[in-house]
């Protein structure tokens, strides 16, 4: 497993799922709405991105030079991955006290949000359908973002990514949520909205199917045979996405 790929997955897929979490969960939204802060995660040889809390929303995006309140520097992907795993501390180049307040202890807003989101995403038994739905949507978004990051940064997955033709791939849970994987300029990007012009479509027919596949209880080939995963369009694009998807769990585990 590549530490660099894991760092990109940790930032854009794991932390990136905060975007949906604060949108869909009332408690999370309440915590987020009290924050107005931009945090840069600057990882040498890894992701350099910003987590922006504003107006009750979260945006996780590449750093493009805009001012930030906190600038966290990590000297390697390994160091960043340790921070995400809770076994390491970042070095704040800017905003030491804000860092301590925002993410310095388990009851800090960022820690509360990420810990509870991670717990939700790892659930295998649910209190009810709404909790299952929330957990599945979060995991689905993390999975989709991870496809792009693993495809771009894992040595083996890059073979698949390079063979994906240019264009949009729609990945959907029917009537629940959609993301778009865009292949352009030799890389994959995950866009968290429905594709208007997909060249290929992979649709899970229900929350149950999506949850079963993400948790590993179901296998995708059997679901395609059973018709609970609907695939259409340019199948070679999906074939290569599936090859990347086979590698994603070792990064998201």
């Amino acid at each position: 497993m590549s530490e660099k790929a894991k760092a990109f997955v940790n930032f854009y897929a794991a932390i990136g799922a905060l975007e949906q979490y604060v949108e869909l969960d009332a408690k999370a939204k309440e915590i987020a709405s009290k924050q107005d802060i931009a945090v840069r995660f600057n990882v040498k040889n890894g992701p350099d991105g910003v987590v922006l809390f504003k107006d009750g929303r979260v945006k996780v995006m590449p750093y493009e030079g805009t001012p930030v309140d906190i600038n966290l520097y990590m000297s390697s992907p390994e160091k960043f991955n340790a921070v995400v795993d809770g076994t390491g501390m970042p070095f704040p180049k800017k905003g030491l006290f804000k860092t301590l307040a925002f993410m310095g202890k388990p009851t800090s807003p960022f820690s509360l949000l990420t810990d509870e989101m991670a717990r939700l995403m790892r659930l295998t038994e649910f209190e009810g359908y709404e909790q299952k739905k929330l957990s599945t949507i979060l995991a689905f978004n993390a999975m989709a973002a991870a496809i792009a990051e693993v495809g771009n940064h894992d040595e083996i997955a890059r073979y698949s990514m390079e063979r994906i033709l240019d264009g949009e791939i729609s990945i959907e849970i029917r009537d629940v949520c959609s993301v778009t994987l865009l292949k352009k300029d030799g890389k994959l990007t995950c866009i968290k909205k429905k594709s208007e012009r997909p060249r290929a479509i992979m649709m899970f027919d229900s929350i149950d199917t999506a949850q079963g596949l993400i948790s590993g209880e179901l296998d995708s080939m059997s679901c395609v045979s059973a018709g609970t995963v609907i695939t259409k369009g340019h199948m070679l694009m999906l074939e290569n996405v599936n090859k990347i998807l086979n590698i994603v769990p070792k990064y998201l585990a």
Partner: peptide, 11 residues
């Protein structure tokens, strides 16, 4: 089999 990509839609 329908999962091979040549029988679309499988239904």
């Amino acid at each position: 089999g329908p999962a091979e990509g040549c029988m679309i839609p499988s239904s």
